[in-house]
Nucleic acid binder design. Structure first.
Lengths: 262, 262
DNA sequence: GTGTTTTGTGATTATCTGAGTGAAATTTCG
DNA sequence: CGAAATTTCACTCAGATAATCACAAAACAC
């Protein structure tokens, strides 16, 4: 079947969005026909016919399908645009409730002791990108950024950097000359360079090869380094802040390795 | 405990957003302290200490917490703004994938037979509001809208109606004179009136009293009527379209009941 | 160093949710 | 009225998740 994969993917995504298997299958099935009865639906979704009704009821309560109360009942999926709008509404209201509830929550002071050598790890391109944006936004004087993979040079990142260009010094390194030119055009105020990224390239078994993803140095006091698993695209980062002078050592080492020009 | 409810609500919402109980509790717990160890977390969240690690790993993979790989490990929640940004990103990408997949899906023609008397039901204020917006946007000549409860007169609805004011005739009815004045100010081009909404007020057992929510008549060819459960706020709607002349009967009846002025 | 506490991993059991199935009640139609 | 389809309901089974325990490794106190 040519569109079988698409269907499975749609069902998958709907389950990630919180629907049960039957509910997801029913919605996808209904999206394929203008209108349908329980029997028809059961045939193209291989959801047991006797369970169609439960699933539809939940979907109706979520505003994703309409029901014609005749005999036999007929079902119909809400137009996709309306459905996504409804789902978005759910999401927004949840975020709002979460924010409210968390703010009302009383904090407990864990009298954080000697915060000397703070190195934190995080995972996931999305989260790391967010953290990158925040660091860029909070920079006071200088941003040194090395991009290891051009997939990480998003539009948002470019515009964020341009937004800071007249307040802080920008140094942006890339893996290749082509990418350097692109960056130079996109962010004219930045000083760009090509970095010797062979540094730190780890070749494990051919299975888990990792390349350097980003290297971000903000005001010489915070650093973020991420690695990209070349096969899965998973991104892992370590992030350090609150150094008093430790990073000077690292900076010097990076300089000496030719990763950052003087 | 004064903020106990808030905490439970936060945990609840996080679970609705797809986290497991332990994960949600850990995130909320971490949000209450700047930084914490597994033991501290276990104490304030009553998640078994030995399960903290699993939960944190999942949270880290989702970009919701950072881990300091020392001994003992220390955990820290990502700032709320970053967390919601990350969650939003997940949501957006899921919606995109869903849209793509559904569009790629092959439709099956269910040669919809005699579509005579089509009455559909839907549930949920969110979904009904979306449908209302769509009907308003698609109107050609005339919109008759009766608002039974002022909570339904949202800003978006007002602006949508104003957007159509010079293309279609607007008749807007309300339950009270105060509300009528508000509407008249907000939508100056509309003809407003106070409607006798005692019509159709059903008093069941004191448990399930329902009031009329909205009544929308578009181009005399589509109708949407909703009821509001006064205690829970649940909104149920029936929606009819594709009539050739059936609605003329209904319109006449509504007129004769004084619900709509001539 | 040694004994004790804390930390982290893994295995195991109990509980709950959801998928899958069939019986029974209801309706439709000949 | 009887047969077929529709719809609801109750039940089983499997997999996921919560909860507990056992144990090794590390950190700490003395």
């Amino acid at each position: 079947m040519s569109t079988g994969d698409s269907q499975e993917e749609a069902v998958d995504v709907l389950q990630q969005l919180g629907l049960k298997e039957y509910e997801a299958k029913c919605f996808v099935g209904l999206s394929r026909m203008s209108t349908g009865t329980a029997k028809q639906l059961s045939e193209i979704t291989d959801v047991p016919r006797t369970r169609i009704y439960d699933a539809i009821r939940v979907l109706e309560a979520q505003g994703l399908v309409e029901v014609q109360h005749s005999s036999p009942q007929r079902f119909r999926a809400v137009p996709l645009s309306e459905a996504t709008e409804t789902l978005r509404g759910q999401y927004e209201s949840r975020i709002d409730r979460l924010t409210d509830a968390l703010e009302r929550t009383e904090k407990v002071d864990s009298s954080d002791p000697s915060a000397v050598q703070e190195i934190w790890a995080m995972t996931g391109t999305e989260a790391i990108a967010n953290r990158t944006h925040k660091l860029v936004a909070d920079a006071d004087e200088e941003i040194v950024l090395v991009i290891g993979d051009n997939s990480l040079l998003t539009d948002k990142l470019v515009s964020d950097l341009n937004g800071r260009a007249d307040e802080v010094d920008l140094f942006i390194g890339t893996a290749t000359e082509q990418l350097q030119h692109r960056v130079q055009e996109a962010i004219p105020d930045a000083t760009t360079f090509v970095s010797g990224l062979e540094w730190l390239r780890e070749e494990g078994t051919t299975e888990d090869e990792t390349a350097i993803g980003r290297l971000l140095l903000v005001d010489r006091s915070m650093i973020l380094v991420s690695t990209l698993a070349t096969h899965t695209g998973d991104e892992h980062a370590i992030f350090g802040g609150g150094f008093q002078n430790g990073l000077i050592v690292i900076s010097r080492r990076l300089l000496s390795q030719g990763l950052i020009p003087s």
